[in-house]
Structure formats: structure tokens, C-alpha cells
């Protein structure tokens, strides 16, 4: 009996030792790479913003004209996110919002949306997802053009019932075999537009046109 107890204890100690060691290695790598990861993700985001906001729409420094958006159920966000405002001659022309589709096939799909001042989508892109490669990943631009189907859509032309994939009676295309993925994104886009409608003024005005940054 004693022998068994001792060997059990030994096993436990052994496992704990290796787990602690592993955690230490992981944690230190995490802290070492964290800044670089944030930086490269931000650089990627800027590239995306330039894709979805037509350059004719703004003449301001869009990266600097940002606003913190509190977590919102309509946006599917659990943390404060950043909205970027596009302005033309000082007039608000579009806003770039982050949104999360929580119900993708393999978890959350992070989106970035540009909404014109009139409530029309200028563009949507997928920032991060874990959908099945080769099946659900046509939502990413180089792998499929599906995501461009959102360009120019608004809640003025499509009612709630239209914001669904065609299989569910809506207006949006999907690919057979991967319906859950587009369903999640369409839903998230619609909700983001509702959010925009409710918060339009807050989004554009909050901290007014920023001062010219001196270089």
C-alpha cells in the first residue's frame, strides 16, 4: 500500500515538474514574441484597411484618426477594439470597424468592415479564422472572392431576412459543403451594420477631426 502511494506521488511530482518547466518555456517565449506579434498583426491590418476603404474616400491620416470602441454584443467583441475613421475634406466618409463572428465552423472569425457614412458596406475582410483549409477558407481574399460580395450592400437595400445565405432564403452566395462559415459572416456583417446605424454619430464625432500631427 505504501509502495503504491509512493510511486503515485513520484509520478505526480514528475508530471508536475515537466508541466512547470513547459509552462515556463511557453510563457517566456510568449513575452519575448508578444510585441513583434502585435506589430506584425497591426501592419497586416493597415494593409487590409487600404484594401477596403477606396482611396478616393479619404484624405486624412486614417491610421491616426482612431477611436476606441467598447465591447459590444452587436460587434461580437469582448474587448475594446479600435475604429478608424476616414474623412474627406473634414467630412466623415467611412469608418473601419472590427467585428467577430462567434459561430464559425471552428470558432471565432475576426472581421474588419468598412462602412460608408451612408450605411453602405465599402468592404469586408477576414482577419483571422480557423475554418477548414481548402473548404471554408474561401472567405479569405486570395483564396476566393466571396467576401467581395458584401461591397455596396446595406440595410437599406437588404432587409433582415435577406442577410442570410441563399440556402436559408437570403441573398448571399455560399459554397456547398461549407455553409456554416458564410452564414456566420453574413450574420456578423448585418449585426455590425445595425451597430453602425445605432452609433453612427458617436462613431464619427467622438473626438472630432484630429489635429494635424507635426512630423
Amino acid at each position: 500500500m505504501k509502495r503504491i502511494a509512493r510511486s503515485t506521488l513520484q509520478t505526480a511530482v514528475n508530471l508536475v515538474f515537466f508541466s512547470v518547466l513547459a509552462t515556463a518555456v511557453l510563457a517566456s517565449t510568449y513575452f519575448m514574441t508578444h510585441d513583434a506579434i502585435v506589430k506584425s498583426e497591426e501592419a497586416e491590418k493597415l494593409k487590409l484597411i487600404n484594401q477596403i476603404v477606396p482611396s478616393a474616400l479619404f484624405d486624412n491620416d486614417i491610421i491616426q484618426d482612431k477611436l476606441s470602441v467598447p465591447a459590444s454584443e452587436l460587434l461580437g467583441t469582448e474587448d475594446v477594439t479600435t475604429a478608424y475613421r476616414a474623412r474627406l475634406k473634414g467630412e466623415p466618409s467611412a469608418v473601419v470597424l472590427e467585428s467577430v463572428a462567434p459561430d464559425g465552423y471552428s470558432g471565432r472569425i475576426a472581421l474588419i468592415l468598412a462602412v460608408r457614412a451612408n450605411g453602405e458596406l465599402a468592404g469586408v475582410r477576414v482577419v483571422a479564422h480557423k475554418e477548414t483549409p481548402g473548404l471554408g477558407d474561401y472567405i479569405e481574399l486570395p483564396k476566393g472572392t466571396w467576401i467581395k460580395g458584401f461591397d455596396g450592400k446595406s440595410r437599406a437595400i437588404y432587409k433582415d431576412a435577406d442577410w442570410k445565405v441563399k440556402k436559408d432564403g437570403g441573398q448571399f452566395d455560399y459554397m456547398a459543403g461549407a455553409t456554416i462559415t458564410p452564414r456566420a459572416i453574413v450574420k456578423a456583417a448585418n449585426k455590425a451594420l445595425i451597430y453602425f446605424g445605432e452609433n453612427r454619430d458617436k462613431l464619427f464625432v467622438a473626438n472630432a477631426p484630429q489635429k494635424e500631427t507635426t512630423k
Binding site: V25, L26, T29, Y30, M32, T33, A36, I37, S40
Partner: peptide, 10 residues
């Protein structure tokens, strides 16, 4: 995971 972090960063 370490390799993943490094690739994500660099």
C-alpha cells in the same frame, strides 16, 4: 507552440 509564436512574430 514556440515555433508557432516565432513564425507569428517574424
Amino acid at each position: 507552440t514556440v515555433v508557432q509564436y516565432l513564425m507569428n512574430a517574424y
